[in-house]
Amino acid sequence: MLKGLLYIFGFLIAGELLTRLFNLPVAGNIIGMLLIFIALKLKIIKLKDVKPASDQLIKYLVVFFIPYGVGLMVYFKLIAEYWIPLSLGLVFSSILSLYISGIILQKFGK
């Protein structure tokens, strides 16, 4: 678990470092995600070393974004003012996205 966490934090720092060094328009944790995938693929690190920590983080992922959800209270007025077009947009765009992904895989997948 501890070793896994250390790896995960290591890749996170590496990601943050790369974003800053090269001024990348992508967040450091996303670079970290790509790096850890590559490291696993190239067998630089072992799945069994990181899995205990990563499974726990993913298990409680939803808890970690609760504070951001609570932050919505600050913007309540703004959302309330535009809630109809916002909801329409979200529904329309989500259905479009669902349909396009679904139809492509259904038509051309095995």
Binding site: G32, M33, I36, F37, L40
Partner: peptide
């Protein structure tokens, strides 16, 4: 206090890379 919890979002995204590999 909330920010101590949301801090873990960063490493969680890295953990998704592990899930993806798996």
């Amino acid at each position: 206090g909330g920010k101590y919890i949301s801090f873990f979002l960063g490493p969680s995204v890295v953990a998704l890379g592990v899930f993806f590999y798996e």
